[in-house]
Structures are given as structure tokens and as C-alpha cells.
């Protein structure tokens, strides 16, 4: 199960491959460290602790050989929030607190992003599916979650392409700025696609009444840029194996 090739608009997973100790560390441990840091740092405003955590995170980027600029994509959209937060805290409370709070946010965001950068998304999916196993008693079926994830990855470029098509078509009609003229055709085509894809999956996995049946892992027969063709008639299912 790997992220399917995506359209121009959706870059694939942002994981940067590498062989560093951080890349090789089990994903579950990385997520536990992240959870511990997130909980622990929430209770401190000590500049020593927060500064130390930021320095350790920076060391992590060095060990994983990740240029810090890869972090800017996440931090930049937050600037318009971080600057007012810094100023409000500085003027209302104290400048030390302002530095501490902004440092905490940047440290946690940077650490979380480091986990993302060093963990391939299929590894992350495997960890999530494994972590869900105990929830079986509550009716959570890890295989179905895995199916949902792989289907969604498959649909991303399809729906993205569909949205683009609808936009182009409505622009040609002079409706490019009418949000309803954009949303409705997109919704209707998406809902129509649901029936065709379901039939295709059930045709190959023999229905879904058996709770323990292995989910269909084969690619769903949806043409990459599904237009009206895919919406009205199911594409022929490619035979796997």
C-alpha cells in the first residue's frame, strides 16, 4: 500500500527518505516521544526547559540531515498568528512569557514535522492500523480503516482532477465565481462515483458481510482523470495478479 501517483496539484507525502538513526527508529517510538513532549512541554514556561527542547529538536534535524528550511512551509502560515500572540503576551504579561510560549509552539510543531519528515506514510499507516487493533471490541475494524485510507489516497488525484474540470467548465460558462455552480456538480459527480466504485470492490471481494474478510487492497478501477465517463459507467476493472 503506497501513496498513489498524485496529480500536479497534490504533492505526494512529504517524507524525505534517508538512512539516519531517526529514519530507522520505529515509528511507534517516535510518535510516543512526540506525545510525551507535547504533554510535558504544555506544563512548563521555563525558558531553560523550552530552549533545551528546541535545541534537541534542532539536533534531531541535524541527525536526520533535514535542512531546517523544510520546516518553514509549516511555520510560515502560522506567522500571522505567532506575531500577535507574541505582542499580546509581551505587552499584557511579560516578554519572557511571550518568548516561552512562542518557543513552545515552534518546538512542538518542529518536532512533529521531524517525525513526518523521517517516517514514510505507509509506515505511519501501518502503525495506525496496529494501534487500532485493541479497539476491535468497540467495533473498529483495522482492515476497514486500512481500506478507507488506501481508497482515499486513490481518490485524491481523481477528485482533484474533477474539481479542476468543473472549475474550467463553469469558467467557460462565466460561472467561475459562483460557488454553488462549482460545488454542486462536484458533489453530484462524487456521489455518483460512490456507487460504481462500490460495485467494483464488491464484485472482486465477494461482498462485505464477512467481518473478517480481507479488504480489497487492489487498486480501485477509477481512471486518473475521471470525467463524465467514470461518473456514468464503471471503467473496466484491471485484473490484479
Amino acid at each position: 500500500m503506497s501513496p498513489t501517483p498524485s496529480s500536479e496539484s497534490h504533492a505526494p507525502a512529504r517524507t524525505r527518505p534517508g538512512r539516519s538513526p531517526l529514519h530507522r527508529m520505529p515509528a511507534g517510538i517516535k510518535l510516543l516521544v512526540l506525545a510525551a513532549a507535547g504533554t510535558g512541554l504544555a506544563f512548563t514556561t521555563s525558558l531553560w526547559v523550552l530552549g533545551g527542547a528546541l535545541a534537541l529538536t534542532g539536533a534531531g534535524y541535524a541527525i536526520a540531515r533535514q535542512p531546517v528550511r523544510r520546516l518553514f512551509g509549516v511555520i510560515r502560515p502560522m506567522i500571522w498568528l505567532l506575531v500577535p500572540i507574541f505582542l499580546v503576551q509581551g505587552f499584557m504579561e511579560s516578554w519572557i512569557l511571550a518568548v516561552a510560549i512562542v518557543t513552545r509552539i515552534i518546538t512542538l510543531v518542529a518536532l512533529a514535522q521531524l517525525v513526518t519528515l523521517t517516517t514514510p506514510s505507509d509506515t505511519m499507516i501501518a502503525v495506525i492500523t496496529r494501534a487500532l487493533t485493541p479497539f476491535r471490541v468497540f467495533g473498529v475494524h483495522p482492515g476497514k480503516v486500512a481500506l478507507a485510507i488506501s481508497l482515499a489516497l486513490r481518490f485524491l488525484p481523481v477528485i482533484g482532477g474533477l474539481a479542476q474540470e468543473v472549475r474550467d467548465a463553469q469558467r467557460a460558462r462565466g460561472l467561475g465565481h459562483n460557488p454553488l455552480a462549482l460545488a454542486l456538480p462536484l458533489l453530484i459527480r462524487t456521489l455518483r462515483m460512490a456507487g460504481d466504485v462500490t460495485d467494483a470492490i464488491e464484485a472482486r471481494s465477494g461482498g462485505d458481510d464477512d467481518e473478517d474478510a480481507a479488504p480489497a487492497r487492489t487498486p480501485v478501477p477509477v481512471t486518473p482523470r475521471a470525467g463524465s465517463a467514470a461518473a456514468s459507467s464503471p471503467a473496466p476493472a484491471p485484473r490484479s495478479s
Partner: peptide, 19 residues
């Protein structure tokens, strides 16, 4: 899991720790 799907192309675990 790291896909940049939020508006503005944001993604990754980092966004879950922001304001």
C-alpha cells in the same frame, strides 16, 4: 501522515500542535 492537504498546502503532524 504527511500529505499537504490543508489549505495553503500544509500537512504533517506539525499542524496538530499549532494554535
Amino acid at each position: 501522515i504527511g500529505l499537504p492537504l490543508l489549505s495553503g498546502g500544509r500537512g504533517g503532524l506539525g499542524v496538530f500542535f499549532g494554535p
